[in-house]
């Protein structure tokens, strides 16, 4: 299966779903287009393009062979970012960012423990201080005890 064929099939499916939704929003009103008119128009064009790609696809295969693909690093990076989102507020910015940077530097980028500890600590603390104190961005402090005027 080629990228174009997969893309064309996906576009046709999406266009069908959008058409259904657009119908519900209302396509036309007296002397004026309805709220669904624009998405309907986009879906029609999308369906045409999707069909064109599915019928006359290019040659690039869907499974492109990655030379030196670092899948382990990729998944660890993605998982650490996925973990960062829910813990940002309860753990606070400094702790969650420190954790994220440690994982990135140590296991994704393969830096030594010393470098990872130094860079992660410095970056997490400095960015917190700059953004919270100087730029007044209310970054959550979470488990970190902070003075009242911070």
């Amino acid at each position: 299966m080629t990228v174009d064929r997969a893309l064309g099939a996906g576009a046709l499916l999406l266009a069908a779903l959008v058409c259904l939704s657009a119908w519900k929003y209302g396509i036309a009103r007296p002397n004026a287009p309805g709220a669904g008119f624009w998405p309907f128009l986009i879906a029609v064009v999308m369906a045409g393009l999707g069909a064109a790609l599915a019928i006359r696809p290019g040659r690039s295969p869907l499974q492109s062979t990655g030379v030196n693909s670092n899948w382990k690093g990729f998944w660890i990076a993605l998982a650490s970012m996925g973990f960062f989102v829910p813990v940002l507020v309860p753990l606070g910015y400094p702790a969650s960012m420190w954790l994220l940077l440690m994982v990135q530097l140590r296991w994704v980028e393969g830096r030594s423990w010393t470098t990872a500890l130094l860079v992660a600590s410095a970056a997490a603390i400095m960015s917190f201080v700059v953004f919270r104190l100087l730029l007044h961005v209310p970054l959550p402090s979470g488990i970190l005890p902070l003075p009242r005027n911070w």
Binding site: V85, P86, L88, L100, E109, S127, L135, L139
Partner: peptide, 30 residues
Amino acid sequence: YRILSPLIIMFVLLGAYALNNSHIDVLATV
């Protein structure tokens, strides 16, 4: 680049949060 890359990730996530102070924006960015 192996040092710069995590720092860029930090700025991306920080920027996403700082926009509306919302962790949903961070999730959307990811």
